[in-house]
Nucleic acid binder design. Sequence first.
RNA 1: GGAGGGAUCGCAUAGUGGUCUAGUGCGGCGGUCUUGAAAACCGCUAUAGCCGCAAGGUUAUCGUGGGUUCGAAUCCCACUCCCUCCGCCA
Length: 424
Amino acid sequence: MLDIKYIKENKEIVKKALNDKQLQGTVDIDLLVATYDEYTELLKKVEIHRNLRNSISKDISRVSPEEKQKLLEEAKHVKDELQEMEEKLKVLKAKIDELMLWVPNVPAKDVPFGENEEGNTIIKQEGVVPEFSFEPKDHLELGEALGIIDTKRGAKLGGFRSYFLVGKGMLLEQAILRYALDHMVAQGFTPMNVPVMLDKKYFVGTGYFPWGSEDHYVTQDDLALVGTAEVSLTSYYADEVLDESQLPVMLAGQSPCFRREVGGYGKDTKGVFRVHYFTKVEQVVLLPEGEELSVEWHDKMLGFAEDILKGLNLSYRVLLMCTGDMGAGQRKKYDIETWFPSQKIYRETHSDSYFLDFQARRLNIRYKDREGKIKFVNTINNTVAATPRLLAAVIENYQQKDGSILVPEVLRKYTGFEKIEPNK
RNA sequence: GGAGGGAUCGCAUAGUGGUCUAGUGCGGCGGUCUUGAAAACCGCUAUAGCCGCAAGGUUAUCGUGGGUUCGAAUCCCACUCCCUCCGCCA
């Protein structure tokens, strides 16, 4: 959420953001500002009336019985007028609240314009693309042959995009997650196990709703299932006031992630690349205000994710996302794409975004600065490791000619084995 | 699933229709005293909005939302959360 005063004073900037982010027609900024002006005008009148009501009421308890009758009649009259105005005021407020939810964040100055993913810029590429003396297989073919990925029985039980990870495949997945989590703990992050069914207001708060509500599952108790631990971690301090000395808050959460993938029916139908349920280690940081600091941490957190991929010896590249391919709430976003030998392309495995106070305003997360002033925190989040997608990358990149999978060096202390081989 | 109790200014508590502009204690901040500290004493102690150069004024907020009333922390209704007990359960 942006400050309504900022919107009012920077209407053209906000409208441009709306267009650049390809969100044309989702919210009428002129209507919002006009409604807000109408609201503040009426609010002034209401407050004058409330003042009048309050002072008459106070007098009633003090004056003589004769005067009391007179005041009572006057008070009734004021009350009726007030009721009418307050009714209108409530309607206006609701309208503003609704419109405000749809106002996106303004992209940072260095975010390139682009209508879709074609506008993204590759800013770096790291690691060595593995060369194979044979035609590399995809993770599904390898996983099925080794008996570690079973999408057939997954689909039998849970439909399309369901899967089982079996035996050493499951252990390798756990190793990846633990490796990622340990790395974040080593950086000073607090590891967290988080609730994954949350009140919808926290999805609104983090900016997933209203835009992405279609991609989320909802329980019969009207809680939504998280698509990422970001929602739980970022909302952890909702409605609280921190002290500046507590910042930066550095949280690393592991959680199941649920996504309906309604926009991706035909996409990535093979294997466990795009699934309805996966597990992810996520990093979230709350900072004092100031874009420079956010930029610094945004890059730092990108580095933590890169550490994981470097440790796994996977080749990756980093993309600066263009306006049309970033979330409504985001100020700037990097994606990391990791090399998938079977597809011979880099595919998204990580997403790193900063928001300034966009999420904090929606979630009402504030802090008291050194002068005692109350301000909104700034928020950032990034993937650390998401599996089975990253598992698939490991499987494909570490495949051997005989169909076995070598376990990356850094994971061996977690798996306790060095290779996944066909049974007999 | 059933029964009962509760939610008040950072914490603990008081407050059952108007002097609540929410009392008291603790904590915190400032001051007096002191070589320094403690103790004692004095003062201050929330958030958001609006008006104002400022001083200040004003509105809202006692879990949330509605209602009754001239007036609600207080009465009524609904909801949320917490606690205790019973049952069930990993």
